[in-house]
């Protein structure tokens, strides 16, 4: 038996070889770079060592702070809408008295946007939301809902809202499927008991459904948070020259990192930004995890 155990190493070695080269080493190299003033020319090892200078800059950087706030704003609006929509849909479809039909068709339609190539989605909305000849303004004008075209992507608030809504459009179907599965997983007895006790729909929802769904909700929030803090494609492609305009309102943390590195070639600083981003995700994940842990106890 023991002699066979060397196969354990054999079986996991491809994973760990590749993992060390393409996973661990880049992370360590990024860390090293964040202590240098590397500019993307030559090799990071020949760049000047500057100690914690890049991190000192990061802490004082008003633009990074702005990127941090932008990212949270865009994510916050999106997660609230997304959860609300998904919950409403899940409750409607799981209602035992209504017995609505067509779940699978609606589910498929709601989920469809999630499969789209994100860069295509960004381009699509870039053109749909265009101030001058976007299809949305054209539609709203024709319907008489607005009298002047709205410069959706030209003003900070509407631009952020637009990105939030695009994110909601992309993800609410996915969240709905997960929450719906969660409700389906709850024993029917709970609902029947509530019905016998004479609870109405609203009471049932707040007293029975919601508490039982909490672990799943937290799972949804955590995965969405990790994804949301890394938002990049849509702001990058939807803003001119990928700079995150108007007034920097679409500069997310990853977009900031990308532009510092690949536009301005401040690789050293961008590496520090990456570690800053990592730390932020870590802290917030731990907070939410702790929240989840409390629930289980």
């Amino acid at each position: 038996m023991n002699s066979k155990n060397k196969y354990g190493y054999l079986f996991i070695s491809p994973f760990f070889i590749v993992f060390s080269i393409f996973g661990v080493y880049p992370i360590l190299l990024s860390l090293y770079m964040s202590f240098t003033d590397y500019k993307g020319i030559g090799s990071p090892y020949s760049a000047n060592w500057v100690g914690l200078q890049q991190y000192a800059r990061l802490i004082k950087d008003a633009y990074f702070l702005q990127a941090f706030i932008n990212t949270w704003k865009i994510w916050g609006v999106n997660i609230i809408l997304q959860l609300a929509l998904a919950l409403i849909l899940a409750v409607i479809f799981s209602d035992m008295r209504l017995k609505l039909k067509g779940v699978s068709l609606f589910r498929a339609i709601f989920y469809l946007p999630n499969l789209m190539t994100v860069s295509s989605v960004a381009l699509l909305f870039l053109y749909i939301l265009d101030w001058h000849h976007g299809a949305l303004n054209g539609l709203l004008l024709r319907a008489g809902l607005i009298s002047k075209p709205v410069n959706w992507l030209g003003q900070p608030h509407t631009a952020q809202l637009a990105v939030s809504l695009i994110q909601t459009w992309l993800w609410f179907g996915h969240t709905f499927i997960i929450i719906f599965a969660g409700i389906e997983g709850i024993s029917k007895d709970y609902f029947e008991a509530a019905m016998i006790d004479g609870a109405n729909r609203v009471q049932t929802f707040f007293k029975v459904t919601l508490p039982l769904l909490k672990p799943i909700m937290i799972y949804v929030v955590i995965t969405s948070l990790i994804g949301g803090l890394q938002l990049f494609e849509i702001p990058f492609l939807i803003s001119q020259n990928g700079l995150g305009g108007p007034e920097g309102s679409l500069v997310t943390m990853v977009l900031y990192l990308f532009n510092q590195a690949f536009k301005y070639r401040n690789f050293g600083y961008a590496a520090a930004v990456a570690y800053g981003l990592f730390l932020i995700i870590l802290v917030f994940s731990v907070i939410v995890f702790k929240g989840m842990f409390k629930e289980e106890v």
Binding site: Y9, F16, S20, I21, Y25, L28, I41, G42, S43, Y45
Partner: peptide
């Protein structure tokens, strides 16, 4: 395993710094 990993890592570092010129 650890030793193996550290050897591997340092090989990569050396290899990449060797070819890392413009």
């Amino acid at each position: 395993m650890k030793k193996y990993l550290s050897i591997l890592l340092s090989t990569v570092v050396v290899a990449t710094s060797l070819v890392g010129c413009g």
